[in-house]
Design a binder for these strands. Structure first.
Lengths: 272, 272
DNA sequence: TGTACATCAGTGAACGCGCGTTCACTGATGTAC
DNA sequence: TGTACATCAGTGAACGCGCGTTCACTGATGTAC
């Protein structure tokens, strides 16, 4: 059973660029974090649209203009929250994967464990989740800074798929004629389970290019399923539709995994 | 090939309660619609959070307080827009289904046609879509009035599934042990392809209760897939990930259909 | 058909609120000699 | 180690903006006799 190239559970700490030396630097780092923490609480309480620099400043006992020493604008603060949220989700998924790899569970159970950890995170931080995976805030244009952290989440899922593939447990089949629809970057990500530019990953041998592309395409639909299913529940569309959202989620994830030939044993009536 | 019990393409006109007689009544109806139309334009331009009664009134050349003759509050206007959006989506899906049933396409192609029509609608009205399927507007509690229209959309999808089931083309298998996770209402909806209370539908004989429940569970995951996949694309998460979103969408819908034993022929390399 | 009254649409002013961002400033912390 | 200067955090006032909702009112439309 293969484990990942750059093992799960390894995650650099947030935001620390280099160790702060002077009192000023330490104070700045602390206050930056305090601002984000308060903003995050306001986010959960009132939604992204209602985060106000003035309210955050008020709660911190400072005057509103002082916040501008730390964030050049409201949008910049939002961006920081988005980046943190992506990293937190990736960290949760990563930790869940590490644990389940430790226990040497099969690939289907790994997939389910990672999915559940992401859902749990979403249920605990619904507004933070909505900030990154919900409707975009109009007028806010996500800057380049959010791309890499967003990829971190996908990376964990890709690792599950590529590990299973490397163990020969997948049966991806072509989905469409007319060539692949994923970009090369995604194919590389799934095949290598690493971000190409980072250069940390060593490609896993999954067979020819076509197989890798098929794998990437199926992994992408699994990823879409995961995010979409959580959104559906979080945005209230399961109310009155489902008796037990957790079981409906498991079922949806099992269906998504099926598509790639990965069996998630949820115990149909045949099982104990 | 069975067609639906209460055929597609039948849809009562919006909002008309009874024919207006007096000039006042006609004027009121017209202005109510004008307010909604302008609000809808503002919605598409600036997002739900930024719809303002004052701005709408201004554009209509009336004073802001006059709008309160038509909608008791901003929330009530939002509710009206939500209801209209649900109905419009259902109408689009319904029309697509009617057309494809007319052409006597197979059930896989029907499913794909309905999905594509919903996606097309979403791409044309992204903010309206986000209003109903995106992150909930905080502080806004969806009233009971939105439940029935929301069900209309699901109803069209359920019809595709139950028609296919009635023709013996589906192979639903149990997903989970421990009993069904869908509510009885949903099972009835899929089995009867009608809204229970309405009493218009005649249950299709799909076999025993267990089969109907399995069908409902699979149909639900298909529904979740549809909405989730559209959200994923609309909220920008396919940027840089996929070469052709339309093809990625088709693939995702094919995968969702596979889970119920419904084959959507997208022509893998084996096909022409 | 005509009048008296009731209903309703739209006005304009006001209440009370909060927001993001800028700017000239004071005073504390850090740095170079 | 001590002094002179530069950097930076935080202040307080201000600009200019828009919002939802209420209320007493005028004048037009509808209705009942």
């Amino acid at each position: 059973m293969s484990s990942s190239v750059d093992g799960p559970g390894q995650r650099r700490p947030d935001t620390v660029v280099s160790a702060p030396r002077t009192a000023r630097e330490r104070a700045r780092l602390e206050l930056t974090n305090e601002i984000k923490t308060v903003a995050r609480r306001h986010l959960e309480a009132e939604g992204a649209a209602n985060i106000s620099l003035r309210a955050v400043a008020r709660e911190l006992g400072m005057v509103s203009s002082a916040v501008y020493r730390y964030f050049a604008s409201r949008d910049e603060l939002l961006t920081a929250l988005i980046v943190d949220a992506y990293r937190a989700i990736a960290a949760a998924a990563d930790a869940a994967l590490a644990e389940v790899v430790e226990a040497d569970e099969d690939h289907g159970r790994r997939w389910l464990a990672v999915c559940r950890s992401v859902r749990d995170w979403a249920l605990e931080h619904p507004q933070e989740w909505a900030l990154v995976y919900g409707s975009p805030v109009v007028g806010y244009e996500a800057p380049q800074d959010t791309v890499e952290p967003a990829g971190q989440v996908a990376l964990v899922l890709a690792r599950v798929a590529s590990d299973a593939a490397a163990d020969g447990e997948l049966a991806p089949r072509p989905l469409l004629r007319g060539g692949p629809f994923v970009t090369d970057g995604v194919t590389a990500l799934v095949a290598g389970a690493g971000i190409p530019e980072a250069g940390t990953a060593e490609p896993v041998d999954l067979g020819g290019l076509e197989v890798r592309e098929q794998l990437a395409e199926r992994a992408l639909t699994m990823w879409i399923s995961l995010i979409g299913t959580i959104n559906f529940e979080l945005f209230g569309h399961l109310n009155g539709v489902v008796l037990d959202p957790a079981r409906a989620f498991d079922a949806a994830m099992a269906v998504a995994a099926e598509s790639i030939g990965l069996t998630v044993d949820l115990g149909g009536p045949g099982a104990a």
